[in-house]
Design a protein around this nucleic acid. Sequence first.
DNA 1: TTGAAAGCGTTACCAT
DNA 2: ATGGTAACGCTTTCAA
Lengths: 346, 346
Amino acid sequence: MATIKDVAREAGVSISTVSHALSGKRPISEPTRRRVLEAVELLGYRPSWTARSLASGRTGVIGLIVADISNPFYPTVARGVEDVANAHDYSLVICSTDGDERRERGYIDVLEARQVDGIVYMAGLAANRRLGELIARGSIPVVAADEQLAELDLPGVYLMNERAGRMVADHLASLGHARLGFVGGPRHLPTVAERLEGYVGGAATHGITIPDELIAFADNRAEGGQVAAAILMALDDPPTAVFVANDMMALGVLEHCRSAGLAVPGDLSVVGVDDLSVARLVGLTTIRQPMYEIGATAASLLFEILDSGANPATVRMQPELVVRSTTGPPVERIYGLEMRAQLGLR
Amino acid sequence: MATIKDVAREAGVSISTVSHALSGKRPISEPTRRRVLEAVELLGYRPSWTARSLASGRTGVIGLIVADISNPFYPTVARGVEDVANAHDYSLVICSTDGDERRERGYIDVLEARQVDGIVYMAGLAANRRLGELIARGSIPVVAADEQLAELDLPGVYLMNERAGRMVADHLASLGHARLGFVGGPRHLPTVAERLEGYVGGAATHGITIPDELIAFADNRAEGGQVAAAILMALDDPPTAVFVANDMMALGVLEHCRSAGLAVPGDLSVVGVDDLSVARLVGLTTIRQPMYEIGATAASLLFEILDSGANPATVRMQPELVVRSTTGPPVERIYGLEMRAQLGLR
DNA sequence: TTGAAAGCGTTACCAT
DNA sequence: ATGGTAACGCTTTCAA
């Protein structure tokens, strides 16, 4: 591997001239620059990022910690982060904790050891002491996204979760639903709690009370949605509509309906959050959140800190209701049963 | 940030003693070691990975290039790669090309500039000149996984794709299907071509010929499966069963059936490949491939090269048929139409 | 506009 | 068992 020294020798100039010709950090005469560039070309020289990092004190890497990379939500956000990172000549390394705290600790240690220049955190683990310590140490700036870290007071970018919940309640109430259910991930997650809060509040606006037994928390993935739906729909008086706190779980709810022979939206209206591409695929009514922009904005906040040491304000994104085919008016339960009996259906 | 120098001063020993006490690369007296460890603790010293890389000539990073991180297949494989990487004290950086050749070039350049110690490549892009050049340069070992790079002759780990295709043909034929369709990603992908080949060959064994019009290639994702299914099922004489070259596309096929009112497996039997967790969720019959092991094995091959300069042999993994509820005997088309008419269904 | 040289924080070799 | 010190390949003063 050719080094800067080789290039200097080949071009007949000093090392610092090569460095500056390449970085453009000081004026270089045109002929000199050309000679350098030719030498670079000839030798196939590629600057060592490692050496550059050591000398400059910046690694040119930012870390992204996500909860679960196999939920398509995260890759989309990650793309937003990555694109603005690249625009700043930074690389991105993605760490997926899968809700495992040991993994998360490991990642935080590695990111710190590798001295990444900044971290975008969107895992929302309950007891992230390690992250707290890292932030306390203050050597690596951190911005949050998606899940707000209550105790840590970081700049961040989040969906207006409460508003999202209200929008869903409004939509469902306007369709005539009065028996509303909720399915979400762990209740300690701010997104879940806030979406539920808005939902309950919005329902109250329409004179609807959501009883505790219609509120189910489960694992934050499709499987969780499936078991939660099974529980809710086995109730004596099941909901006619559910708000599911994210699209993957909503897929699980839909799957339960399919396997249990429940019609959607006939027997149950379902609305999710995220608007993953699969939501369009299955016709899921959902709350769209600007995933790519969330990532891009989070990264921008980080670079604000990196570039100017600023302490940027938190950003809140607008949710948007996308009505597709999993929501509709409730079918009167009694009639429904009678009609199904007449039709010879179970 | 405390450096090794600070630790040395604090512990009252030399820099090299600290280095060796930490790495264990040479005998250190117990009291000395303890003093060093205490100093490390006291100062909160963390070795600089950057400096270490520069001095040792190894970055401790391997790169993983995947085609599309939002297909859950890849995160699962990636986990396998990562776990063995971590076991070797290596970090993993994942690059998702999304089928975009410019992105891929960019990633390869970055990985090379960062001087990662090795690369696991599973993107299978058609014209990857840049990768060829990198391999030709020979400074960074590369192993392939999933998609075989015909022109490049790398060590790699792949599914026995042809056998997978045969297994599907056998399964479908044994159920009594005679009109077999195929849906896959771009035909230039070795996985697609091989699975199709095995399928066609297996069908022939049962005296079944698969006509060209029942073979559809599309975008390698759920949406692609959906449009391919739409085309096949609009034929005058549509297939009674399809082999879909991966689970995400199979999901798209299933979605087409749902939205078109086609019963599965009544009107169409569907089998996929991968056995993603979502396949279980929706009851998809599929060919399981050991995703995690593929990743882990690929990483092991890479470390064989890294550790001993060996030239490891390619590994082929066994496919396994998992029968669920999307395959069943074909319903006679004529009878089917009559019966449906009788039932008042369309 | 250019060059020389002092770091950056390690590792690894050579002494002791 | 321990210490001294030359790399590693670059960036960045400081001089000229």
